[in-house]
Amino acid sequence: MAAARPRTIFLVFLAIALQGFGGVLPFARRALVDRRAWLTPDDFNETLSLCQSLPGPNIVNLSIAVGARACGWRGSLAAVAGLVGAPVVIVITLGVLYGQFGGLQLVQRAIIGLAAAAAGLVTATAARMAEPLLKRRALTAAPFILGGFVAVGVFRLPLPYVLLVLAPLSIAIMWKRSA
């Protein structure tokens, strides 16, 4: 990708973050691939799939990768600061406002509606993530989707232990299949 200065990287990711209501990824693709041409479409997909197989929010990982390739750790730092800084200030402000006015009846009424819709949003996200896996390889995917859901969602078992059991098993199966 073309060389870019930390300042430019910071500003590009700041703009991406502020546009990203209800999902930052589409805006990131538009800015990085279409407008800045820092990544080709193939680079974007490949980098994203690398970022998706690592822990942490995809988009934050993507900013680390783009920044690192442009100018090392300073690029990564600039990208993350741009992406994270403003939303954190905004959400803390909203939190403080909620703390001040959250007791008001009107605010509480709005929040219970908002919370119900937010729960629906996550349900749809889960369904959308499940769909391609179930279409392509239901036999190897479904047991782990169900296992993760029952263990963590229904029985509320601690996440680290559940991951320690399910992830290696699932990875081993995919490894055997590819070998």
């Binding site: 998706q52 996550v122 349900t123 896996l133 782990f144 993760g148 992830a167 990875i171 199966i173």
Partner: peptide, 29 residues
Amino acid sequence: PWRTAIGAGIAPVTVGLVFSSAYVLVRAA
């Protein structure tokens, strides 16, 4: 090849966890 296996292996577990999140939020909201 290990990277592909890790990515593909973790994917369904992650989906199960996101369903868990949905379930927790639905019960709270």
